[in-house]
Amino acid sequence: MAVEVHVIKSDTKPTWCPGCGDFGILNATLKAVQATQLDPKDLVVVSGIGCSSNLPHFLRSYGFHGIHGRVMPVATGIRLANPDLTVIATGGDGDGYGIGLGHFIHAMRRNFDLTYIVMNNEIYGLTTGQASPTSEKGMVTKSTPWGSIEWPVNPIALALSAGASYISRGFSGDPKQMATLIEGGLRHKGFALVDVFSPCVTYNKVNTYPFFRERVYKLEDEDHDTSDLLAAYEKAHEWGERIPIGLFYRVDKATYEEEEPALSRGPLVKQPLGLSQEQAEALIQEFR
């Protein structure tokens, strides 16, 4: 069944500020889902809390819009219950790299088969403009009126260390490339990170569209070897004049779901409930 974009797009209108980078991510996500020909009934979009985390409402698929920072455990719970479902996890930089950072790292080292799109605007948007874990050093925000004195986290380098098996970065100013990256993530078996520069036009006056347009270049234009971990690390640390976007690293390795014995009989949701007579009798023997 061919799935058209209009079928997976819901009637709910996004409430983002005009010009918000998250629109580009929504469009790219719709395109990527369409390209994979996924039936939307088998797709679950999971998010946390933030401007960005409203995204599930704009797709006509199943969705779970949870609480701040807990997108990963909810998404993995869904995957473990029913690996027949495709899961997109999404949310902001505060959600994923701040309050939810621990879950992010553990989900990557477990290599759950899901795609995590982080709408990284280097700021807390919904709470009206405080510093985020990706805010640059020196950035003036409502919570750092004299400039942030912290170094930002580097999500790409973090993902490389934590064991994610598909690590990429997009830019809302280039929805075409981003759609390709998301599609690649959806097709990849394992944990796929798509970190996206998604300018917050209202609260981040530093990391704007022009800021990124002047700096970003595409890894695919520079012969980057996506199977080379060390090269990927080097690219992950490029910042300043030139900032790479595209696929940093990809590797094939077993997913958690493939190695989990309880899933060897198929999805948990399709297993019979309760105990057979033999099982019950065997259990009782243990207590005699």
Partner: peptide
Amino acid sequence: LAAMNLVIGANFAGARA
């Protein structure tokens, strides 16, 4: 935090967790 949210995700998908 993860345990509880994971249980919610699994129940949402239809597994008794």
